[in-house]
């Protein structure tokens, strides 16, 4: 259960705040105009930016000051989600590094992860030898095996075409439905497609997540302005 308690993040003269009650697993879409602070908020939750005020709590425990690798979060960035000098299997193996697993177990888990994202048998390739869609799947497999309860998606599929993006979103829903996923998007259709909650990010604040259905049918003013309605 993720809770944001009076969280405030500043980057230069720009600031974003969020006050969210406990969030159960499921997919939350963060929607709002460019420059509203969606990435800033995600980065703070992932541990890449310090919070200037407030707390981030996971199951009641304060995680505000932890390093990214020690948080219950896994992040997919807009780019550079895989080390280009390592093979896909080596990249994914890094996610399992600290588990004290035998090599055979690791191999099995990697094969399983790759199969889940439909990349079975491509573990020996390097990222550059894969298509854009395949790279996204490989990155998703990495997040899967990181096995963190919170997954943060910072528009990792932005560069993909509409059909490929839809495919990836469905894949996210299929493999990550038991976790809490925070997903940044510009497109209400993305939210409608897989998210069960939506937080509107505008005017320096990320609203407390509300069920998708209601919010899209009866958008608040800020979202209405963004949607051009």
């Amino acid at each position: 259960m993720l809770r944001l308690e009076g969280l405030r993040v500043e980057q230069g003269s720009f600031a974003i705040g969020a006050h969210w009650p406990e969030q159960a697993p499921g997919i939350i879409a963060l929607i709002g105009p460019s420059g509203a602070g969606k990435s800033t908020l995600i980065s703070a939750i992932g541990g890449f930016l310090p919070a200037t005020a407030g707390r981030i709590l996971w199951n009641g425990q304060d995680i505000t000051g932890l390093a990214p690798g020690q948080r219950p979060t896994a992040t997919l960035f807009q780019d550079n989600n895989l080390f280009p000098h390592l093979t896909i299997a080596q990249n994914i193996a890094l996610a399992l590094r600290r588990r004290g697993m035998s090599t055979a177990d690791q191999k099995a888990r990697i094969a399983e992860g790759l199969a889940q994202v439909d990349l079975a048998g491509l573990g020996d390739r390097k990222p550059a030898q894969l298509s854009g869609g395949q790279q996204s799947r490989a990155a998703l497999a990495r997040v899967l095996l990181q096995d963190r309860p919170v997954v943060l998606l910072d528009e990792p599929f932005a560069a993909l075409g509409p059909a490929l993006k839809a495919e990836m979103l469905d894949l996210v829903k299929r493999v990550l439905s038991d976790r809490l996923v925070l997903m940044i998007t510009h497109d209400p259709q993305d939210a409608a497609r897989i998210a069960d909650r939506v937080s509107v990010v505008a005017d320096g604040e990320a609203t407390s997540p509300e069920p998708t259905q209601g919010i899209l049918q009866n958008p608040p003013d800020s979202l209405r302005a963004y949607l051009g309605q």
């Binding site: 690798g69 600290r98 990181q146």
Partner: peptide, 10 residues
């Protein structure tokens, strides 16, 4: 790639 390394706790 520093961010990814942070993410993986490297």
């Amino acid at each position: 790639h520093g961010r990814l390394a942070d993410e993986l706790g490297l």
